[in-house]
Amino acid sequence: MLIEPALLRQYRYFESNDVDDTRQRIAAVLQPHRLMPGVARAGHSAYMNHVRIDSLGFGTIGYAGAMGVDAGEIEDYYLAILSLSGYADVTVAGRRAIVGPTQGVIVGPQMRFGGTFSGDCEQFFVRIDKRAMLAHTGYDHLHIEPLLDLTRPELAPWLAQLRLLASSPETIALAQRDRRVAVEFERLLVTMLLAGQPHHCQTRATPAAPAAFVPRTVKRAKAYIDEHACEPITLANIAQAAGVPVRTLLDSFQRHSHASPMQMVREARLERARDLLLRARDTERVADIALGCGFANLGRFANAYREKFGETPSATLRAVRQRAS
């Protein structure tokens, strides 16, 4: 089982036998939606267990019987839905999927979501605010492939992290007390999700200003990125170093730079990785250097490296050792 449901019962948000009350309680955590009850199960109540850690929320939902749900367009957050028991027949952005033991879904902002949950379905959900995605990726518009194939090895680290977080009350309590810990968990979950799930992203197209003028904000941000690129920095860290709000930082980069701040972080990490590969000792491995430079997914690192430098990291390392022999 992905997550032991009993571990989340201590975070019980509500129980109810009233459909309107159920809808209102869930709407307060997610968003307004319609509920269309089917056959109820005798002796069962609807419930929700919910944990909130800064911009991240997760928990479980069970209905008192079969339930149709129409959420309309998802607002300013990303919502992943998995099944701990039973199944759901859902539609995400016009695509049908069966949420069950081997498949989940993830819905993003402005995507329509609805479906029918079986009477014995207990769903596990993860809600990540759009601003958290922006803070950890630097992209205004991030589209994640809606269908989650839970059998893919690439998603195993993300699922394991969810299991670890949901099963540790001590870790949850620490993250709720200390925002620094909460941000690190957000970053880890976002990074692992995007490392394992296909996605594409874009920023707003804004005409660049003449290259001769670079505002102080961008210079300060670039200096911070150059110094800290291989650390687990976020967009908020860069904005703080530049002395401006995140939105102002993004606008400045769109007008005065060829790349977004987080794209620049990626470029700086690649440059640092190449420098370390060119100076690598006999005992050093590509994986060690990639992880040390902030790349959690070695496959994506190798692809990005080859695209930038025209050869694989292992080819660079092999050539260095051949010259040294």
Rank of each mutant, 00 (worst) to 15 (best):
R285H: 12
L35C: 04
P157I: 11
A173G: 11
A229T: 07
F124R: 00
Q202I: 11
E186H: 05
A66R: 10
A80P: 04
R269Q: 00
L134K: 02
A229Q: 08
E154Y: 12
Q240P: 11
Y87T: 13
P198W: 01
Y78L: 02
D129S: 08
R285F: 13
R318P: 04
Q240A: 15
D288Y: 13
L174T: 15
L317F: 01
L276D: 03
G119A: 12
Y11I: 00
A229S: 01
A42K: 12
Y13C: 10
D275H: 15
K222Q: 10
P32V: 02
L291R: 14
G57W: 10
L84Q: 09
L277W: 02
L30I: 11
M1T: 07
H228D: 13
A296C: 09
M67N: 02
H228G: 07
R180L: 11
M264Q: 09
V19D: 01
A166E: 08
R272P: 03
M264Y: 14
R34V: 13
K130Q: 10
I238A: 00
D178N: 09
T60S: 09
Y63E: 02
A315C: 07
I289R: 00
F14K: 02
I26Q: 09
I98F: 08
L291K: 14
I106M: 04
L7V: 13
R23T: 00
G104V: 02
A304Y: 05
L56C: 03
V105K: 04
I3V: 04
F253T: 01
E73F: 10
Q110G: 15
E227V: 14
V19M: 01
H258P: 15
H199M: 13
A132H: 06
Q197M: 05
M192G: 11
G119H: 13
R127G: 08
E73H: 15
G104P: 00
V214R: 07
E231L: 12
A221H: 01
L162C: 06
T312H: 03
A324K: 09
V51I: 03
G94A: 06
M36V: 12
R131H: 14
E311A: 10
V39Y: 14
L164I: 11
R179C: 15
G38Q: 03
I233W: 00
K219S: 12
P146E: 04
R41V: 05
Q110L: 15
M192H: 15
K222T: 13
R266W: 01
P109V: 06
A304W: 00
R180H: 13
K130W: 06
L142K: 09
E15L: 09
D129P: 06
H228S: 03
V320G: 03
R279S: 14
I128V: 03
Y47C: 05
L317Q: 06
A88S: 14
V99E: 06
V181F: 05
T151M: 13
A209I: 11
D140R: 12
M36P: 08
I26C: 04
C201T: 15
T316F: 06
L188P: 09
S252Q: 12
R96Y: 10
F253G: 00
L270T: 02
T234C: 03
